[in-house]
Amino acid sequence: MSVDLSPIDADLLKTLTNVHGIPEGAYNIRKDGELLTRHSSANIEIATKTDYPGIDIRIKDGTKGERVYIPVIVSKAGIKDVVYNTFYIGDNCDVDIIAGCGIHNDSHQASEHDGIHTFHIGKNSRVKYIERHYGEGSGTGDRILNPVTTVYQDENSFCEMEMTQIRGVTSTVRDTDAELGAGAKLVLTEKLLTDGDQKATSNMNIRLIGENSNVQIISRSVAQDNSVQIFNPLVAGEAACHGHVQCDAIIMGKAVVKAIPGIEAAHEDAQLVHEAAIGKIAGDQIIKLMTLGLTEEEAEQEILDDFLN
């Protein structure tokens, strides 16, 4: 399908999808609170919800090597867009899902997008979910993103979630919940960068219900200037299971970071570990890169880029 995109929209879309223009395969692109374009594939059906604004994405059993793109772009100010996207992923699938929201706001009015995502992942299925959040624009209007992600993993499924807030989001409250069945594994990586007076809160509640379920949470964040970040990851083990929570933050300027990792065990064979570290960039790291020819500013940027890579 041919769709005309403004240069701003095209740039936002590329930042979210890493693809020039409209991606191939199954996709649903939403712009300023409305559907821009959609395409279903033989195995992946995307349909408008009948009760709430949003879409249902149904992926047939055994679908392998396919991708679904569901990016959202907001380039109009004063919009508050709430959308419900529900994924029904069959058994024995292996799929990639690329989502995210890019806001361009040149106005003094706020723009907000709240994506409510629910995933039902079937038995033995493997899902890679990549979500990027990004804000830009010259206006003073807030760029607000409040995603809610809920994951239900069936037996022996594997889900890898990589959620990144790249830059420019004024305010975010992220809620991520998951329930894991027997043998299911979830690897959840969250990367956040805040600067200026931005605020970010990330709440996670992961319940390990099935035997041998396993979750690994990796949170990496950089807080610059006067920004504030709060992390509340909680892992609850209700069976023989493994959980590991790791929060790492680089703090700069007058930023504030609070990391409150929590673990709750309700089974004697639940093995849960958490670790959290907050610190500034070490002077030794900067000096090492300077001895390789980088300036102090280049060294600092390199360290931040790699940390959030």
Partner: peptide, 24 residues
């Protein structure tokens, strides 16, 4: 500066090298 000396061709191997999270 260290940077300028490095560009002139001086290099340094540290006794206790730094670690860099995320850098390959």
């Amino acid at each position: 500066s260290i940077t300028d000396r490095a560009k002139l061709g001086i290099g340094y191997g540290f006794q206790q090298p730094s670690r860099f999270k995320g850098m390959k």
